[in-house]
């Protein structure tokens, strides 16, 4: 929020955040961690409520649980991405590190993923970075992706959809390297690393979609 006494310049940017989680404790926990420039503008307890809030408020960021009534985080991610594209970024905030739902969420356009045990200041930092275009991308997700693309390679196409370089990036992120460290290790710029990650997520989206279509065709749906 802009300081009223500061009339000399434009108000510092504020980023709006909607919190979607069916546990009030979790919501108040996240709210307590938010401080300018992150401003919580709404809280939702289920997917329907979340989607209504998102449509009405168009926040910069949605911090969204996976297990929620009325379709869960997955529905929030799908419908938000479909309606608002990249303007509203949904970050999945979950207790689980293993769920397939998580991959589906990321494939459906979730901007990033953080575990609920992420400490407050770290959460704040990661969300800010997400707004700046840098998806929070925990080692666990990179590990899941490694396995997922191997599975795709084994089953569908016979070749890994990822390039050699993308696999290297993914491998290093899974091992806990920051983008900066990945860049150093591979002698590329940090920005290039971010691009690789974006491409990896794009490919995940494509392979999941292709798989869904194939699955639907195999099962005679439409």
């Amino acid at each position: 929020m802009a300081d009223v006494t500061d009339l000399s310049g434009p108000a510092p940017p504020a980023y709006t955040v909607v919190i979607a989680d069916d546990h009030p404790t979790v919501r108040s926990g996240i709210r307590a961690d938010m401080s300018p420039p992150l401003v919580v503008v709404g809280e939702a307890g289920d997917a329907t409520e979340a989607l209504a809030l998102i449509d009405a408020l168009l926040p910069n960021l949605v911090v969204c649980d996976l297990n929620m009534p009325e379709g869960g985080g997955l529905r929030v991610v799908r419908e938000t991405t479909a309606r608002h594209g990249d303007t509203v970024k949904v970050v999945v905030f979950t207790v689980s590190e293993h769920e397939r739902d998580l991959l589906d969420a990321v494939a459906s356009g979730a901007y990033g993923y953080l575990t609920k045990s992420t400490p407050g200041p770290e959460l704040h930092r990661q969300l800010l970075r997400a707004i700046g275009g840098d998806p929070p991308f925990a080692p666990q997700l990179a590990t899941l992706l490694l396995g997922e693309f191997r599975r795709v390679a084994r089953q569908a196409t016979g070749s890994n959809p990822l390039s050699e370089r993308e696999r290297e990036v993914l491998n290093l992120v899974a091992r806990g390297y920051t983008y900066k460290q990945v860049g150093k290790e591979l002698f590329i710029a940090e920005k290039t690393v971010e691009n690789h990650v974006r491409n990896i997520l794009g490919k995940l989206h494509l392979t999941r979609r292709a798989e869904l279509i194939r699955w639907a065709a195999d099962h005679d749906i439409r």
């Binding site: 546990h23 404790t25 979790v26 926990g29 307590a32 961690d33 207790v95 609920k116 045990s117 407050g120």
Partner: peptide
């Protein structure tokens, strides 16, 4: 589990005391 795990994760995140955070993490 969902509820309890969530609460533990929150305690872990929110606690100022290293010891309590550690306890919550252990329990989780």
């Amino acid at each position: 589990h969902d509820g309890v795990l969530q609460t533990l994760a929150m305690i872990e995140r929110r606690s100022d005391s290293v010891e309590i955070a550690r306890l919550a993490r252990d329990q989780e």
